[in-house]
Nucleic acid binder design. Structure first.
Lengths: 198, 198
DNA sequence: CCATATCTACCTTCTAGTAGAATACTTGTC
DNA sequence: GACAAGTATTCTACTAGAAGGTAGATATGG
């Protein structure tokens, strides 16, 4: 249990692979057999690490959300200016868009399938959205106070608009099969917040 | 073949049901058995109308896209003002959000699963996105010329931002399980275009 | 020796899809 | 209007393969 032998343990490989597969097609878009083939083990071995598919995806989401929080914390340390924080956030995603294994927010993708998702998964997805909009609300709030932004509405409603804009841009990039549209949309999203000065 | 006996033929019921199921969970989120149960026929009868799942979903998308075009044409006839056209468009979706069987754009939902979708389906989804952004580009263009809007970027890039914002708002509404967020986001989206006057 | 990890072999249910029989409707002919 | 021929539609019954999952044997390493 303590060992973890290799640098990337089998259970990490399984989680990584499952994440890529969820990003590609959501909860019902992959199977244990798909993972087994990629990781190079048998289905039963996956069940040893993650007894059920719900266990696997819930764990994957906990890990993903932890990484997101860590990433945001790092981003806040490196960029003091709220405008720079937003730019760092969208730039991060602009780079992900080019890589099929990370071209979509796992939670945004799963959110679209909420009506057919197990309730445990829905809770994680919802929690991620709340974390994201709370963070963006605080960034916009700070930016408005410091004079970097002039907000048309409340910080909260502008934050929800920003979240929606970023997720919608991921969707459009995927629909067109064109990475550039993501940057176009998110740059304009930030531009609207900074150029709207009074 | 000419008859269609009832007002809503069996194949129409199948298409309607399949559409609801796609809206709930996408291409891999439903089966012929699910449709059979709802419509009250056997699986084999569905295969008579739509030999394969790809046939069914492609037909469903052709029908959906036709309805979308008709809806937009109607909306343009009833509202001369570009601002009113955008309002009518988002109001239409605001009403859909409350009804689980139509709470998401079929093409937006399928776009998220493009990597695992049959190519015929991808083509339809992509075509819908192009139609939508072309229409919104023309609306914003007209609005800018007539003085109703002041666009921060090109009509095209603002249109892509609008599409992304609307789809992202659908996603957020589903994630939170809260219909109101859709209206908040889309109202602010329009507000930014009209209140940004020079 | 004990725990973790992986394996083979299997189960049950679901999946899309097929074959062919049994209905029900249309249509032309008398 | 009656009747047969054809055509649509639906059914039962089935298939092969994939799904998620289990039991129990076999390694592997401290």
């Amino acid at each position: 249990m303590v060992s973890m032998s290799n640098l990337t343990s089998t259970s990490d490989k399984i989680l990584q692979c499952a994440r890529s597969l969820v990003i590609a097609g959501g909860y019902n878009g992959f199977s244990y057999a798909d993972i087994a083939e990629v990781v190079g083990i048998r289905k039963a071995s996956i069940h040893h690490h993650f007894p059920s598919k719900v266990d696997l995806v819930r764990t994957l989401l906990e890990q993903y959300r932890e990484e997101a929080k860590t990433g945001i914390a790092a981003l806040e340390r490196y960029h003091a200016d709220p405008v720079d924080q937003l730019r760092a956030y969208t730039s991060y995603w602009a780079e992900c868009i080019g890589d099929p294994t990370s071209a979509f927010c796992v939670c945004a993708l799963l959110a679209s399938q909420i009506p057919v998702l197990p309730p445990e998964i829905v809770l994680e997805v919802r929690a991620h959205f709340r974390m994201l909009s709370a963070w963006l609300t605080s960034v916009l709030d700070k930016g408005a106070t410091q004079g970097g932004f002039v907000l048309a509405g409340t910080a909260r409603s502008e934050a929800e608009g920003f979240v929606a804009g970023v997720h919608g841009a991921m969707l459009s990039a995927r629909a067109y099969g064109d990475d550039k549209v993501f940057k176009v949309v998110t740059d304009s999203l930030i531009e609207k917040l900074v150029s709207n000065r009074s």
